[in-house]
Structure formats: C-alpha cells, structure tokens
C-alpha cells in the first residue's frame, strides 16, 4: 500500500487502537519522512490527536508498532521513553502552557528541567526562541494575559527550546483569525526550512495545510483512505476524500450521526 520512502523518521505499522468498544484505528500504516512536512487530514472525531499521543508514547496501541528513528516507542522503559520524547515536541491544541509561570518561564521550563545550563545561557536561548515566534515582548506576561493564538506561538517556542528532531502540531489552525493563521503557517514553514525539523500536522483544515505540506495522509473511519503529495490528494479518486476536500455536507460521510431508529419513528414515539 505505501510507497517505499527512504529516510523515514516515524514508521507506523498496522496500528490498532480502541477506546473500549470504539475502534479508533483499525490497522493503519503511516510513514513520516525526515525533514518534511507531513499532514494527516481527517474529519473531526477520527482520533487524529490520539495518533499523536500514540507516537509520543502516552498511550499504548492494542496492536501494531510505532518506530521513532528505528526505536519502537512502546517497548521502552519509562526513562528511555523520556529520552525519546526530548527529541519530539508536541504542540497541543490548547497550547498546554503552565498557567502559573510567565511566558519566559514556560519557554525556559524544558531547559531548566533537562539541562544544567547557566542562567545567562538559558536567558539567551529563551529570548532567541521567543524572538523566533515574534513574542519577545510578551516574555513577562502570564498565559492568561495573552490571546489563544499567541499562546500557541509560545507553546511552539517551548516545543523548539530543546531543538527536537520532530514537532507534532495538533490542530494548529483551529480558532485562529486569518492573520495569526498566516503567522503560524509561515512559522511552521520557516522552522522546517531553517532548522531542518520534521513536522507532522494533524488537522481538518484542508486548504491551508495543502499549501505547506509535502505529503498528505487522509484518515477516516480508522483507515488511511488515501495518501500522496498535495496534488495527488486534490485529484483523488476516492469519493470520501473528495467530499472531505470540497466540504460537502452529505456524501459517503453522512451528515447525520448513526441512529438506530428513523426520524419518523422518533417523532411518533413522543406522541404515543
């Protein structure tokens, strides 16, 4: 199914994961290439965030394997897993900034936890990262005092503080106004090019991500529907992918959530 790509950083093989009876992934294969921007597209509720947490080793798959740089993420001891996580950053949808620390201290947090750098060096590094996301001026503010979009940029600065090999973005564009969206897109692209970062973007925001992605996976119903370059995806033969890309309300993916009874039955039941 998948094309053979050399230099794969993350290799997901026949991954199966379920929350109780609800199957999220039913055997998917995904390859994330080193130094490229990979987008994982899919409608809401298909467990895209779950995939990132599986890659990060927070949750364990029911079957299948996930390898990061040739190391099976789920066969590591806790300390080995932590070492592995230092090489990946995850940008939460909410930003997940520590609300009791200033913006500066938030970015300094991973440095203070994992390095023994002197204070002056930490200061320089933090200011560099904040400058990169354009928020050096907000260093002394608390997360509660800045907007959601700025918070996400701070989180990005924090994620790159330890200079990881890969950054995973969870819905980075949701709830952003066009300007901050533009800023974020430029940042992701910029980081990818200047630092050689591998980026994984999980989103349902089709148009914006197709602009910057090098490779796209479309995931729905626990399966990979299609994958390829943005152009290949745009011309996909799959009806589902086309419905998703064009934003049609009805198609293979139903507008209505599955119900055991018909609409008429429900209405009549109320009268009886």
């Amino acid at each position: 199914m998948n094309t053979v790509i050399s230099d794969t950083l993350v290799r997901v093989r026949s991954l199966r994961f379920a929350f109780g009876p609800r199957v999220i992934y039913d055997g998917i294969d995904i390859d994330i290439m080193r130094g490229k921007v990979t987008a994982i597209l899919g409608p809401s509720g298909t467990g895209k965030t779950t995939l990132l947490r599986l890659i990060g080793g927070q949750w364990k798959p029911d079957a299948g394997s996930i390898e990061f740089d040739g190391i099976n993420v789920h066969q590591q001891s806790r300390s080995e897993l932590f070492e592995l996580r230092k090489r990946m950053g995850l940008l939460f949808q909410s930003g997940a900034l520590l609300t009791d620390l200033t913006v500066f201290e938030n970015v300094a947090f991973p440095l203070r936890e994992h390095t023994r750098f002197p204070e002056s060096m930490i200061r320089d590094l933090v200011l560099m990262k904040l400058e990169a996301v354009g928020l050096r001026g907000a260093a002394d503010l608390y997360p509660g005092q800045i907007s959601g979009g700025m918070g996400r940029r701070v989180a990005l600065a924090r994620a790159i503080a330890l200079e990881p090999d890969m950054i995973m973005y969870d819905e980075p564009f949701t709830g952003q106004d066009p300007i901050s969206m533009g800023v974020l897109i430029r940042l992701i692209q910029g980081l990818n090019q200047s630092l050689g970062l591998t980026s994984v973007i999980v989103t349902h925001d089709v148009e914006d991500v197709l602009k910057i992605a090098d490779y796209v996976y479309v995931v729905s119903g626990g399966k990979v529907l299609d994958h390829g370059s943005p152009d290949q995806i745009r011309n996909s033969k799959s009806a589902l992918v086309r419905q998703f890309l064009n934003g049609e309300a009805d198609g293979p993916v139903s507008f209505h959530y599955k119900s055991a009874t018909t609409y008429e039955q429900d209405l009549m039941a109320g009268r009886a």
Binding site: R85, F92, Q93, A96, L97, E113, H114
Partner: peptide
C-alpha cells in the same frame, strides 16, 4: 485543572514526569 487544560500531558510530552514535578 492542570489536567483538564493538558498541562500535565504537555509536561509528559516534554519528558518531564508530572508526578515528580
């Protein structure tokens, strides 16, 4: 609240053990 706002999960992804920290 730290859990609800993903702060604990975020820490874990930064390779910081939230139980210890």
């Amino acid at each position: 609240l730290m859990k609800a706002t993903d702060q604990l999960a975020g820490m874990e992804m930064m390779a910081v053990d939230p139980i210890k920290r």
